[in-house]
Design a protein around this nucleic acid. Structure first.
Length: 453
DNA sequence: TTTTGAGTTGTTCGA
DNA sequence: GTCGAACAACTCAAA
């Protein structure tokens, strides 16, 4: 009866600390490692996302002694087909808690059921504490971060699962749809589980202690850069929580809090799948947004980093160049799009998701909602980031701007944040400001006032 | 049921 | 230059 078990990797591209893999190993006669390249996901990804994913799949293939099977297609068809081909008795996954993944997995489960009662077994999630687990005393979900974080701490983060000493990988034959990595000419993070753990340990040993102090500085290499690894599951957050806590200190505490935030937003999305693309709180539904050709040109300038505000442009160019942006810069560029250019937050959320290697539906879209004031813990409407002030505050020497905006490299010190005030005028090639920040701030405040009526 | 304290991340203005 | 108030009032969570 037995046959092998299929380990269907999704956002858990690792061998260590992987409960679903342990279950697969125990369930069948050998493990068929499978990744399904879903066109729905692949086609929406920009070059950086694609390159990073391919790199992680190559690394996983190496870890599975070359057995990793990559098939392109709709999982609803591919997974049952692989089960048929291999005679597998079960399929193992980590629970996907996002709206698309939940629907997809229901369909796959039904298809497998029709295929001779092959079970889809779920073990673990991509979060330190699985979405839906932390509840208020009355059994309802939290809607505010701070109380959630207390409940989260009380619930406790489980210890990492053991790393299997060996796995009897089974190579299924057939087509190999692992794409070649897109040719991108920038420094991409080194991909895969080993790279993730190495990067984590370097961060822990060298920068974690300073994290609370320096994490807001895009000009320094002060953050962990774990987001992309966490997104694809090259490392599991409970490993980071455990090691950060063992390390101790203020920096570690601040870091664990950020991991808790990631869990919070996943939890919110779990309870409110509609909040991925619609306002969590509908209060601002009637808000006026800018449309038309002129607005479109400004949005294009924003996407390409040509707004004329140096630190905003630096961040948006970094996003296109690296597929990554510092968190504070995400807030700042988001505030600029929503409050200076008066766009719907969804416009920016889509752009970020396409390009960020860590682009995560829950964290990204709820972050945008926070900025727009439609999310949990809604940002007070009057909180409008000033792109010049933020530049001086968080890029005090202007190094970050000069790194990403070559037109301003000749400008020394923090003067880069106000190039329109330079004695020799605006450096050649650098654009004029697309808006008057002070005026647009007032427009934003007026529109909020109108909607609150 | 009512009350109380608090809510990730800001900016501007005037003393 | 620094500091506190104003921005406005509402909802959430727990006691």
């Amino acid at each position: 009866m037995s046959g092998p078990a299929v380990m269907w990797f999704r956002r858990d591209l690792r061998v260590g600390d992987n409960p679903a893999l342990l279950a697969a190993r125990g369930a069948g006669d050998g493990v068929v490692p499978l990744f399904v390249l879903d066109p729905r996901v692949w086609d929406a990804a920009g070059p950086a996302r694609r390159a990073f994913l391919v790199g992680c799949l190559e690394a996983l293939r190496e870890q599975t002694d070359g057995a990793l099977l990559v098939r392109r297609g709709d999982p609803r068809e591919v997974v049952p087909a692989v089960v048929r081909e291999t005679g597998a008795g079960s399929v193992h996954v980590a629970r996907d808690t996002g709206p698309y993944g939940r629907r997809r997995d229901e369909d796959v489960r039904a298809a497998l059921g029709a295929e001779g009662d092959v079970p889809l077994e779920e073990d673990g999630t991509a979060y330190a504490v699985g979405p839906g687990r932390v509840l208020k005393g009355d059994g309802s979900p939290f809607q505010v971060f701070t109380p959630f974080s207390k409940g989260w701490a009380q619930h406790g983060v489980p210890d990492p699962a053991s790393r299997p000493r060996s796995v009897p990988w089974v190579a299924a034959g057939g087509a190999d749809d692992l794409p070649a990595a897109p040719d991108v000419d920038y420094d991409l993070l080194p991909a895969g589980e080993e790279a993730a753990l190495a990067a984590w340990r370097t961060f822990r040993d060298e920068r974690l202690d300073g994290y609370a102090e320096e994490r807001d500085r895009p000009d320094l290499d002060s953050t962990s850069r774990m987001s992309a690894y966490l997104h694809l599951g090259c490392v599991h957050p409970r490993t980071l929580v455990k090691e950060a806590r063992a390390h101790g200190g203020e920096g570690a505490e601040a870091y664990v809090r950020e991991l808790c935030f990631r869990d919070f937003y996943a939890d919110v999305l779990w309870h409110r799948p509609d909040s991925a693309w619609e306002a969590y709180k509908p209060d601002l539904a009637g808000m006026e947004h800018d449309t038309g050709a002129e607005a479109g040109r400004k949005v294009d300038a924003w996407r390409e980093g040509r707004t004329g505000f140096p630190v905003v442009d630096a961040a948006l160019r970094q996003l296109l160049a690296q597929g990554w942006m510092h968190n504070r810069m995400r807030m700042l560029t988001a505030s600029f799009l929503v409050k200076d250019l008066h766009q719907r937050w969804q416009v920016g959320a889509r752009h970020f998701l396409r390009h960020l290697v860590d682009g995560d539906l829950a964290s990204n879209n709820h972050g945008w909602q926070w900025v727009a004031g439609t999310g949990t813990d809604a940002s007070p409407y009057f909180r409008v980031f000033n792109p010049v002030t933020q530049g001086h505050k968080f890029d005090p020497h202007g190094d970050y701007v000069r790194r990403w905006v070559p037109e301003l490299r000749g400008v020394e010190g923090s003067a880069v944040h106000e190039p329109w005030d330079l004695p020799d005028g605006l450096p050649e090639g650098y654009p004029e400001r697309v808006v008057d920040h002070k005026a647009e701030r007032q427009v934003a405040l007026d529109r909020y006032a109108a909607v609150r009526g």
